[in-house]
Every structure is written in structure tokens, then in C-alpha cells.
Computed example of a mutant assay.
Amino acid sequence: MNAAGRTIVLAGATSDAGLVAASRLLTAGARVVATGRSAGRLEPLREAGAQVEVADATSLESMAALAARLDSVDAVIPLVGGWRGGGGLSGQTDADFDALMPALQAVRATSRAFDSALQASDAGRFAIVSSTAVARPLAGGANYAAVKAASEAWTRAVAHGFAKAARDAQQPLRAASVVFRVKALDPEALAAAAVALWDTDAAELNDTVIEL
């Protein structure tokens, strides 16, 4: 299996990483659906060949509406991110924490909205971008590490849901939920990892952490 012919949703894809990932996936023969809240910021993705959708990746309602419009989906990768930190533990402000929360909200909204579609695919994939800060949280990045840790926990719960559904149906596991963990985000490395999501069988890939 490979990415060719797959429909892949990049949710919150208006960053440089989103554009690079979309371009690599398109080159690999995938259909890419890129979302963002600004039509103007989605224009480079449209020019690259992606189908663009103005939609809020942090909103379950918005993502569910998108899922209903798409005929099938084989992979979802939420790319909402950002970093706030510094100032030691006392510098971990509520405002910074609130600014980081959309990343977790996007993981929750996209996984819930597309859960049925990914399980219906013959090779569904859900992947998030996390951070090595989860393994070694620092006082000055406590807010960030906490949000990433919560995102990883949610993604592992998605993996459990995939495995349980397959087991209950007495079917082979076809969907996998994985974490891409990075120290500093390299768009090219992320893009390569997204293309490679179908290089490994779901049973081996599900509930894993891939260091980039």
C-alpha cells in the first residue's frame, strides 16, 4: 500500500509545514483536502493542487460538516500548532495556556468527526504532530508540554478505539493512530512521514510514536 489514490485531510494546513506536506502527498498521487479559516491563506495550497475548504479544525461542528461533504477519507492529520513558553514555572500564564489549547481542540475535533470514515477505509490513518517536550518537560515550557501530552493521550485513545472496533467486529485492524514526535518541526521530515504512513501495516503502526 502507499499514498497514491488516498484522500488525506490536512486540517489547519496554512503553515509552511502544511504546504510542504500537501505538495509531497500530491506528488505521491494522493488527493489532499486542506483546511483553514482563511480563504486567502489557503490560496497557496489551492495553487499546489490541493482541494481547499474554509473550515475550523478546532470545531467539531465544522469538521463533521466537512466529513459529511467528502465521499471517503483515508487519513487525517491535524496541523494546528504554535508555541508559547519561557519565564520558568511562574511564567506559565493562563493566556499562554489558552493560546496553546487550539492544538488539542483540533486533535479532538478531527478525530471525532472522521472516526467512522477512517474505520471504513481499507487503510485509515490518523496522525498528530507532538514534541519531545512530552518526554522531558521543562518548567519554562510546562504549558506547551502539558497540551502536547494531552494530545498524545487522546491519540492513543483513538488507537485503542480502532483496535477495539476491529476486535469486536472480528475483523483485521485496518486503521492506525500514530504520534509524530519532533524536537523542532522540519516540514520536509513531516511530509516524508505522512507519505510513509502506508508503508507499515496498521496492526504494527497503531498506537506508536515515530520520532522525526
Rank of each mutant, 00 (worst) to 15 (best):
H160G: 01
Q171V: 15
L173R: 06
S62C: 11
G82I: 12
R156Y: 13
Y144H: 07
F126H: 12
L79D: 00
L173I: 15
L104V: 14
A99S: 10
L79Q: 11
D94F: 04
A99I: 10
M101R: 14
V182T: 14
S177Y: 10
A157L: 12
A135Y: 01
S72M: 09
T132N: 04
I77S: 11
R156S: 02
Q92S: 10
A139T: 06
A194H: 06
H160K: 14
G85F: 08
G87I: 13
R181A: 12
G81P: 07
S116P: 00
G140P: 06
A159D: 04
L138R: 14
P187A: 08
A153F: 10
A123Q: 03
A68K: 11
S62W: 13
D94K: 00
A103G: 07
A165H: 02
Q92I: 08
A109P: 08
A153P: 09
S111N: 08
G81R: 05
V73E: 05
V158Q: 06
S121A: 09
D115M: 14
K164D: 11
Q105H: 09
V147G: 01
R84Q: 14
G87V: 04
M101F: 09
V76P: 14
A146N: 04
A67E: 11
P137I: 06
S131T: 11
T155Q: 03
A145D: 03
A166W: 09
L66S: 01
P172D: 12
S62L: 08
A192K: 15
L104Q: 07
A109S: 13
Q119N: 07
W83I: 06
G81S: 01
D71T: 15
F126Y: 15
R69M: 12
A163G: 02
Q119G: 05
G140V: 06
A65C: 04
A184Y: 04
A68V: 04
G82T: 13
L104M: 09
Q105M: 04
I77N: 00
A192I: 07
S177M: 07
A191Q: 08
